[in-house]
C-alpha cells in the first residue's frame, strides 16, 4: 500500500494548557522528501512536530505513520520507524560524544549493523569525528547541536537497517548555529532525504527552507495557510501577510530564492 507510506497529520486538532494550538492541520511527508514547516513564533510548528513524534496526543484528527496511528505504537516501535531531534537538546551527564551518539545507535536493538560503525558514520556525517572522545556537556553550542544530530542520524540508520528508519523529525536544528554549521546540518538533513527518509524540519530561516526543502508548509495560528513547492509558497505577498511585516523575495541569477524583511518602506515612512 504505497499510498500509506507517509508521515501524516490528518485534520489534527491539539490543545495545550487548554488553548487550541493546532486547528485541523493536514500535512504529510513522504519518504525521500524534505518538508520544511515554517511560520511565525507560536504558530504551532513545534506542537505539530511533537504530535507527529508521538509526544502529544491529538484531541481530534490523527497523526499517522505509514497509515498507523502514532499514538497506538509503543516507544520501541516508533524508535525503529522515526528519529527525532528536539529543539535545544540537553544532556545532564558528563557523557563523551561517542557515548551520546551510541544512545541513538542502540535505540534499535534489532538493527543488524554494528553500533560502533553507526556511531562512526553519524559523527562523520556531521563533521564531528575528531570529537568522539570529548565530553559532550562541555562542547560549544554548535558542536553540541551537531553531536545530538549525529545521535539522531545514528538512530535513523539503525532503524533503516532494521527495516524502519523512514522518518526524521528536526525541530529548529539550525537555531543558535553559525552560518557554516547551519549549512552542514541542512546538508545532513538533505542527504537523509536523498537516502530515502522522509524529513520534516521545523525552520525559522526561510532561505534555508527555500534552498533545501522539496516542500514547504506555512503555519499560522494553528492552521496551514500554504503548502507546496518553495517557489509557489514562499512569495512576497504570502509571507508579508503571514509575518505581518513587509518581506521581499528575490530570485538570484543562479535560481535560488533570497528572502529578507523589506526594510526600505519603513525608512521611508519614518521620514
Amino acid at each position: 500500500m504505497p499510498e500509506a507510506q507517509k508521515l501524516e497529520a490528518r485534520r489534527l486538532h491539539l490543545r495545550r494548557a487548554g488553548r487550541p494550538v493546532l486547528c485541523g492541520v493536514d500535512v504529510a511527508v513522504a519518504p525521500g522528501r524534505l518538508l520544511a514547516v515554517c511560520g511565525p513564533n507560536g504558530a504551532g510548528k513545534s506542537s505539530l512536530l511533537a504530535a507527529l513524534a508521538g509526544d502529544l496526543r491529538p484531541e481530534t484528527g490523527a497523526a499517522l505513520i505509514d497509515g498507523a496511528p502514532v499514538a497506538a505504537l509503543g516507544a520501541r516501535a516508533l524508535a525503529r520507524l522515526r528519529a527525532v531531534l528536539e529543539q535545544a537538546p540537553g544532556l545532564s551527564a558528563a557523557f563523551t560524544v561517542e557515548t551520546l551518539v551510541r544512545l541513538g545507535a542502540d535505540a534499535v536493538p534489532e538493527s543488524p549493523v554494528e553500533p560502533a560503525r553507526l556511531v562512526a558514520e553519524a559523527l562523520d556525517a556531521v563533521g564531528m569525528s575528531a570529537f568522539a572522545a570529548r565530553r559532550a556537556d562541555r562542547l560549544s553550542g554548535g558542536e553540541r547541536a551537531r553531536a545530538h544530530l549525529a545521535r539522531v542520524l545514528a538512530q535513523l540508520r539503525a532503524g533503516e537497517a532494521a527495516g524502519g528508519g523512514r522518518y526524521l523529525l528536526l525541530d529548529e536544528p539550525t537555531a543558535s548555529l553559525d552560518l557554516a554549521h547551519q549549512v552542514t546540518v541542512m546538508r545532513a538533513a538533505r542527504s537523509a532525504a536523498d537516502g530515502g527518509a522522509g524529513v520534516l524540519c521545523v525552520l525559522h530561516d526561510l532561505n534555508l527552507a527555500a534552498a533545501f526543502a522539496d516542500d514547504v508548509a506555512l503555519l499560522d495560528e494553528g492552521r496551514v495557510v500554504a503548502a507546496g513547492a518553495p517557489e509557489q509558497v514562499l512569495t512576497a505577498p504570502a509571507l508579508t501577510a503571514l509575518y505581518r511585516a513587509p518581506i521581499a523575495v528575490e530570485r538570484h541569477p543562479g535560481g535560488a530564492l533570497r528572502i529578507a524583511p523589506d526594510l526600505a518602506p519603513r525608512r521611508r515612512s519614518a521620514a
Partner: peptide, 21 residues
C-alpha cells in the same frame, strides 16, 4: 543502565529513542 543513560537526554528524547518512560 540504558534507561538511566537515556534519562540524561530528558524524558522526551528518551521516549524518542525508544524508552517507555
Amino acid at each position: 543502565a540504558r534507561a538511566l543513560d537515556l534519562f540524561q537526554l530528558g524524558e522526551r528524547a528518551a521516549f524518542h529513542a525508544g524508552l517507555d518512560v
